[in-house]
Structure formats: structure tokens, C-alpha cells
């Protein structure tokens, strides 16, 4: 195609940049949940199974959707209640969960952390993530969006929900043996 197409050009925007927000209570909360999110990521990366499991509340839901949006009506990659989370951890700890024996070597970046709102006293947090996974199969890059439902308890923050939405959730995926 040779005729030029009229496209908006950089510099056309007239909206000014947002003024820098000062450090208020919301920033303190953001820093606090970021610390939690980073810790959760480190525990998962290092296969610290007991400490990771202890982060969950009793009403927890750990959900990794596939192509379907309703886990009560469609297939999911993971859709664990608290009891299934316990089973998953116990299975990993047998040493015979071959999909994770030997363990994958993992490191994840969690970034773009945002406070999304509050619901029934829980804080809803969104973030982007990338996980590099190395095992004999090769190195796999897992990328997506994660949403946490965090609850403040007398004993610090706990997860009541974690939803991990992979960008390629509708495509063929390799075996996922580790804690995403």
C-alpha cells in the first residue's frame, strides 16, 4: 500500500502529565502491600512451602483461569479452595510430585503494583508479573496479571484470594508444577 494513512502523531496529545502525588496514607498502604507481595513471590520462588501456605486465610481461593472466565462453569488451570491448597502443598512435600522433582529453579518479577479498591474490609491489589522457570525441559517464561485479595489480621497480612491470569491462558501451556 503506497498512499499514506492519516494517523495521529506523537505530540498531538494535549492532556498535561499528572502532578506528582504527595506521600499520604494511601502510599503507606501501597508500600505495605508491596512488601507482602514481594515476600509471597520470594516464598513461592524458593519453594518455602510451609511459609507460603501460612499466608492463606481459611476462606482462600487460589485461581489460575484457563480460557473460561467462570470457574464454576468452565475449566480452570487451578481452582483451589483452602483444602485443595493444602493438598497441593502436601503433594509437593512428598518428594514424589515428579512434575516438581527436581524443583524448578524460579525467579519472578512482580511489578506495576496498584491498589484496586476495598471489598468487605479486604484490600484488592493488582500487579503484573514475569516468572522465569528453568528445568531440564528448558526455560519457560510465564507472564501475566495477578490480583490479590489481602486481609489485615492481628498477625500481619494474609491472602484470601490470588488470581493469576496468564497472557497465554487459551494457548497450549507446558506442565506447571510450581506455585504460580
Amino acid at each position: 500500500m503506497s498512499a499514506p494513512v492519516s494517523l495521529p502523531m506523537a505530540g498531538d496529545e494535549t492532556a498535561p502529565g499528572r502532578a506528582c502525588a504527595g506521600a499520604g496514607p494511601e502510599d503507606a498502604l501501597l508500600r505495605d502491600v508491596e512488601r507482602f507481595v514481594h515476600r509471597e513471590a520470594r516464598l513461592a520462588d524458593t519453594h518455602a512451602y510451609d511459609e507460603w501456605e501460612a499466608l492463606w486465610t481459611d476462606d482462600a481461593v487460589y485461581w489460575v483461569p484457563g480460557e473460561e472466565d467462570d470457574p464454576e462453569r468452565g475449566m480452570s488451570i487451578v481452582y483451589d479452595n483452602r483444602s485443595r491448597i493444602a493438598t497441593r502443598i502436601a503433594q509437593l512435600k512428598t518428594g514424589k510430585r515428579f512434575a516438581q522433582t527436581p524443583e524448578s529453579r524460579l525467579r519472578r518479577l512482580v511489578s506495576n503494583v496498584e491498589l484496586l479498591g476495598e471489598d468487605a474490609g479486604d484490600v484488592l491489589v493488582g500487579a503484573s508479573f514475569m516468572v522465569g522457570e528453568s528445568r531440564e525441559r528448558g526455560t519457560t517464561l510465564w507472564i501475566g496479571h495477578v490480583e490479590y485479595r489481602l486481609r489485615e489480621t492481628g498477625d500481619g497480612w494474609r491472602m484470601a484470594g490470588k488470581t493469576v491470569v496468564l497472557i497465554d491462558r487459551d494457548q497450549p501451556l507446558p506442565t506447571l508444577g510450581f506455585l504460580l
Binding site: 512434575a99 506442565t175 506447571l176 508444577g177
Partner: peptide, 18 residues
């Protein structure tokens, strides 16, 4: 089925590995 199969299934992840 969700518990058993797929890339993270309690059963099928280990079949996939084998």
C-alpha cells in the same frame, strides 16, 4: 476434572513430566 487434569493437575502434571 479441574483438580485432576491440565498443566497443573494433581494427576496430569506428573503424566506430562513422565
Amino acid at each position: 476434572a479441574i483438580g485432576s487434569v491440565g498443566p497443573a493437575g494433581f494427576l496430569l502434571a506428573d503424566d506430562g513430566e513422565m
